[in-house]
């Protein structure tokens, strides 16, 4: 993975596959503490302790079509490379929470990349799931709640291509406003 936004897409896809109704995605850029934190939380089926223990093993997966599961190990590795931290918590029947910290200025920290594109892909493939995205940078905050958007749409599918284009531009603009760049 070359961008943090690709990791986010990948991990949030795990959440939707776990049957989540809502996926919360929080990004905090704290340049004073030189820290970038990403938290992805869901209300999906969760994992038991045994599964959770194996989640970071690249040769473990819950899927049947292949024998490796690289999503979480790669994210943990990416955080580790910058002197950051990786944390995962899960409760059966309640959901899973993944939290990663990066050193913001570290040369090996991947760029954020195309966040609007990540949300477009998530919404296109999972129109039934609510995504609640919060991005804080300094004193600025951008919030996207697809449940609200859906209410506004009044029955028009949220994954309609025109709506997806609207959302893409809305996120891009909102992030620009609080000074979030692709880096």
């Amino acid at each position: 993975m070359l961008e943090l936004s690709l990791h986010i897409l990948d991990i949030a896809e795990n959440s939707t596959r776990a049957g989540a109704k809502t996926v919360w995605i929080d990004i905090v850029e704290d340049q004073e503490k030189d820290r970038l934190t990403i938290e992805i939380r869901d209300d999906g089926e969760g994992m038991d302790q045994e599964t959770l223990r194996k989640a970071l093993d690249p040769f473990f997966t819950s899927k049947k079509v292949r024998r490796v599961g690289l999503g979480l190990p790669m994210l943990a590795e990416a955080a580790g490379r910058t002197g950051g931290r990786f944390e995962i918590k899960s409760t059966v029947g309640a959901g899973t929470q993944v939290r990663v910290e990066f050193r913001h200025s570290h040369i090996d920290r991947q760029p954020l990349g195309d966040i609007p594109g990540t949300f477009m892909a998530l919404i296109a493939g999972n129109p039934q799931v609510n995504f609640e995205y919060r991005h804080r940078k300094g004193s600025g905050i951008f919030v996207l709640d697809t449940a609200e958007i859906r209410k506004e749409l009044d029955g028009v599918p949220i994954n309609h291509t025109d709506v997806l284009h609207f959302l893409r531009n809305m996120i891009r603009e909102g992030l620009e406003e609080i000074g979030v760049t692709n880096h």
Partner: peptide, 13 residues
């Protein structure tokens, strides 16, 4: 994961 890592999001875009 494999699709994302090899550029699927850019294809969708």
């Amino acid at each position: 994961t494999c699709g994302i890592a090899s550029g699927a999001r850019g294809v969708l875009d």
